[in-house]
Design a protein around this nucleic acid. Structure first.
Lengths: 262, 262
DNA sequence: TAGTGGTCTAGACCACTGT
DNA sequence: CAGTGGTCTAGACCACTAA
């Protein structure tokens, strides 16, 4: 067998690197080089321009072709390894993962998810009140008991049908969030608009039976199950931004994730 | 205010770096330097030896103290940033996240989870058969329809009580997995023992009502809800290793996760 | 302005894999 | 053995933040 083929349509086993996708790298652009490479490479893979199972050229060769250091090339590749698109094996090489399309999804809001998947999200604000934090709420929001917090309850619909009931508590800094704002945008959008970036969140997903009021709101029968999610979200400095307990119609919603081993 | 305090018990606002935790770094050890630093640093944070909210010394100083390059020190810190324990801000510094203990949890098996949390997991094999793959199963396992696959159904108990019913299909390479092995160990343990490393998994969590047989097995009433999980797991080269549909008692189990924003 | 993290380079040596 | 990814170094310049 020779070492280099060029146009064998069937199974390109030899090293692959499509230079043509990387002609417009800009070393003077404010966007980092590794990111430019990474995004282009990701697109080439997702579009199938680099076929599943293909072996990439080795890192030093890639770095040379791109005109960047090996560290930079490596960092670009690492980003896709972390996403589960590429697999590295020492002594072997780097390979595109075999057929599958691992969806991204992480730490996003229901509103964003629905919007991104071409559903039309809408929100009805069922409750909007400021009250002093009771024990359990104060504990979860990490504020002193008795501090004013915002308590909201929303019905989230998608394409007109009810999908979830979202109950949230927010600490003192957000008392001025209006019902109008909450009806028009997702909670996490409002956070972003205020310059609050969610950094970490702890969440637990489970199930229970629906209660009568929820059944009515969600348009399901009493005795039906609901999917539940409880979440505490933290901002950059580690302060609690939101505590929420949500319940979802399990026939309309599931928590889908792609997990990548460390 | 002076720039360096030493023993002000209350609020150590100045830069923090406990040299004493890093006296045993071994440059000749096969375990990577960045990993040695990272694990020690993580423990110091989790044990509270570096208090929540503390600001770390700057990266160049840390690197000097450790006797490593800045890149290595940086990589150690980055690992903890990815875990949500640290926050970096350009022009400001690196800070320990304010009070919380984000649990790890990612791509692990129920068996491991129970074991790690000091519960005693046990497995009863309810079903163990080899059969030709029907359409939907073949599609999910990415094997030709009619290929032999292993179909298993297990009851997982914790401290003697039933927690979940695990139904799985495995492709041809695993037909020889015995019922005895499955009773004694978790599925993912068996994979590891065979040198199969799970790399990526797609999973969806939802809820439904329990059926009569399941209710009996799980020791709950018919009409009760169960938490469901469906998962397809891929190994290093991207081949499907396992397809499973599980159902859990929601009063005994929840999917807990810590999400970190990219 | 001085200090911080964010990026990048051009080397180097090693451990592992196949032949 | 030669080739691969994994790690590490010692520099450098930049963008951002605060005083």
């Amino acid at each position: 067998m020779t070492t280099t083929h060029s146009a064998d349509g069937a199974v390109p086993l030899d090293r692959v690197w499509p230079d043509e996708f990387f002609t417009d790298l800009d070393h003077n652009c404010p966007v980092p080089l590794y990111y430019q490479v990474s995004t282009r490479l990701e697109r080439a893979i997702c579009d199938g321009d680099i076929p599943a199972g293909a072996r990439l050229e080795n890192e030093v060769a890639i770095a040379q072709r791109l005109g960047v250091s090996r560290a930079t090339a490596r960092r670009s590749i690492q980003a896709l390894v972390d996403k589960g698109l590429l697999v590295r094996r020492r002594g072997i090489g780097t390979q595109v993962v075999q057929g599958q399309v691992p969806r991204p999804l992480e730490l996003s809001s229901l509103y964003d998810e629905l919007k991104d998947t071409d559903h039309a999200p809408a929100t009805r604000v069922l409750l909007h009140e400021v009250l002093p934090a009771t024990g359990p709420i104060a504990e979860r929001l990490r504020v002193p008991e008795g501090d004013d917090v915002l308590h909201i309850r929303r019905l989230r619909t998608s394409d007109g049908g009810p999908v979830a009931i979202l109950e949230n508590y927010l600490p003192g800094g957000f008392l001025d969030l209006s019902a109008g704002e909450l009806a028009a945008q997702g909670l996490y959008q409002l956070f972003r608009a205020r310059g609050v970036a969610i950094r970490v969140a702890n969440q637990a997903v489970s199930a229970r039976l629906v209660d009568a009021e929820e059944a009515d709101l969600l348009g399901i029968a009493s005795g039906d199950p609901v999917l539940t999610m409880e979440r505490i979200a933290f901002d950059d400095p580690g302060d609690v931004v939101e505590y929420g307990t949500h319940c979802y119609r399990p026939d309309l919603y599931a928590f889908e994730t792609t997990l990548v081993a460390k």
